[in-house]
Every structure is written in structure tokens, then in C-alpha cells.
């Protein structure tokens, strides 16, 4: 297991956003996290990545199951968890290339002093970062847009830029929050291909997605959340037939 979440709970005032949610992701596995709007999926991501602090529960990460429960966001990223956001949050005023280069921050260690001196080691590191970032941009098929300002990219490309930026942090687990939202069929097919390739590189993926076709085709395992609670977990086919899941999405059958 690369990620193991045990009994995670989080409430905002009186609202219980997450109640006792447990979930695990194995190495090179693609796990889908689905559920109706407001089920707590994004809150779950925010708790894992250290944006929110969970009220209770444990988050263990990596081969040695390190406890990262209350780590701040930058430390979680340093451990090897990267994420994309529900509404592509690229750094708007920077070029696509620079966006990806930001992702390498925690993997580089040039000091302020070496930056001021323009030391040869720092220049070497910058070149390596640039090459790596360009590679990643080509990987998500954005190589031609390297010098375009991120804000000028269409939404679909911004999402792919976010993926490249997340990959630049050299993650072992990638959390994707609705990566296919607002994409057309062709773009979705490309995204599917891309996620598979990411997984082939040994990176586990935990994905929130509303597009059932994409989720069913992509994930080896699916976890369903409803009103902050895990209601089902299993293979795509099993989840589709589960009565609780159908109830959560379509409502209860009326008994007259």
C-alpha cells in the first residue's frame, strides 16, 4: 500500500464533511473516488494534502507507512503526493514552462547565495530543471505551448498543464480532482491515455471524477462517498450494481 487512510473525519462547525472514511491505494493502482455533489470528495483530498487538518483519523504514506496526518501542504508534497485542482489553478501570469518549473521547487536545492552568485552548480540545476520541465510538457502534449502565458491557454490545456506541474514534483501518488470536467469526448480519450501512461510510470492515481464512462474504464477499484461517509468500495462492475450507490445517485425507490 502506498496510501492508507484510516477513519478520517472532518467537520466544519456542525457540518460533518467526512465521517470515518478509510481508503487505501496500492502501488501503480488507479482508484476512483466518486459520489454525488457535496459528498466530501474534495474535502478528502484537502485533508490528505495538508490543506485542511482532519479532526481524527490517520493518513499513512509510502512503503514505510509514514504518518503524514498533520503535515503542512509543502511537506506532504515533498513526501511524494501531488494533486491537481477541481478548477484548474495554474499560475496565470507565468508561462506554461515556468508553471512546470515551479513544481520542481522541492526537488531542487540551489541556495539564495548561489542564485545571487550565479554559481555553475545553480546554472546546471536550472538547465536540468528546464529540460525536465520541457520533457513533462511534451509528455502532456503541451511542448509547443511552453512559452505561452498559462492564462491564455484554453481550459482543457490548463488542466493538462496542471498535470505536468504536478508530475514535476516527482510524486509517487497523484490526486486528480475532476480532471475531465468541461472536456469534450476527444479530449477525454486523450486524458484517459495520459492517466494510463502516468500509471505505467509507477505512479499511483487517486481520481475524483463524475464521468462514469471514464471512471469505469480507467479504475481498478472504486470508492463511493455519500454525505461524508464511505458507502461502497469495489470493482467498477460491482459498484455500478450496488443498491446503496444507486440510491445515493438516483434517490430511494418509493414504497407505496
Amino acid at each position: 500500500m502506498i496510501l492508507e487512510v484510516n477513519g478520517l473525519s472532518k467537520h466544519f462547525g456542525g457540518i460533518h464533511a467526512l465521517t470515518n472514511v478509510s481508503l487505501s491505494v496500492a502501488k501503480s493502482e488507479i482508484v476512483g473516488l466518486i459520489g454525488p455533489n457535496g459528498a466530501g470528495k474534495t474535502t478528502f483530498f484537502n485533508c490528505i494534502t495538508g490543506v485542511y487538518h482532519p479532526d481524527s483519523g490517520k493518513i499513512l504514506f509510502g512503503e514505510y507507512a509514514r504518518d503524514i496526518t498533520h503535515h503542512p501542504a509543502h511537506k506532504v508534497s515533498g513526501q511524494g503526493i501531488a494533486r491537481t485542482f477541481q478548477s484548474a489553478r495554474v499560475f496565470a501570469s507565468m508561462s506554461a514552462l515556468e508553471n512546470v518549473m515551479v513544481g520542481t521547487f522541492s526537488r531542487t536545492n540551489a541556495s539564495v547565495w548561489s542564485a545571487l552568485r550565479c554559481s555553475s552548480r545553480m546554472i546546471e540545476e536550472e538547465h536540468a530543471v528546464r529540460r525536465r520541465s520541457e520533457e513533462l510538457l511534451r509528455f502532456v502534449k503541451l511542448g509547443r505551448r511552453a512559452f505561452d502565458v498559462a492564462a491564455s491557454l484554453p481550459f482543457g490545456l490548463q488542466r493538462r498543464l496542471e498535470i505536468a506541474r504536478a508530475l514535476a514534483t516527482e510524486p509517487r501518488l497523484l490526486l486528480m480532482d475532476e480532471p475531465a470536467a468541461g472536456m469534450n469526448t476527444a479530449e477525454k480519450a486523450e486524458l484517459l491515455e495520459l492517466i494510463r501512461k502516468i500509471c505505467e510510470n509507477g505512479i499511483s492515481v487517486l481520481i475524483i471524477e463524475h464521468d462514469m464512462k471514464l471512471v469505469m474504464g480507467l479504475c481498478q477499484r472504486i470508492v463511493v462517498l455519500d454525505s461524508g461517509e464511505k458507502i461502497c468500495e469495489g470493482k467498477p462492475g460491482d459498484v455500478q450494481c450496488d443498491t446503496k450507490v444507486i440510491e445515493a445517485y438516483l434517490g430511494k425507490e418509493m414504497h407505496r
Partner: peptide
């Protein structure tokens, strides 16, 4: 400074602090 990793990190923080933190800054 502005062309170094620190400059990039600063601008990232200005643009979106949460996203910057999640990128390891």
C-alpha cells in the same frame, strides 16, 4: 533572484497560495 527558483516560487505564491503550497513550496 527573479529568474531563480525563489523568484518563481514568489510569483506562484502571489498567483495562488494553496496551489503553491501543494507544489512543495
Amino acid at each position: 533572484l527573479s529568474n531563480s527558483r525563489f523568484g518563481r516560487a514568489w510569483i506562484a505564491i502571489k498567483e495562488d497560495e494553496v496551489a503553491a503550497a501543494c507544489m512543495g513550496i
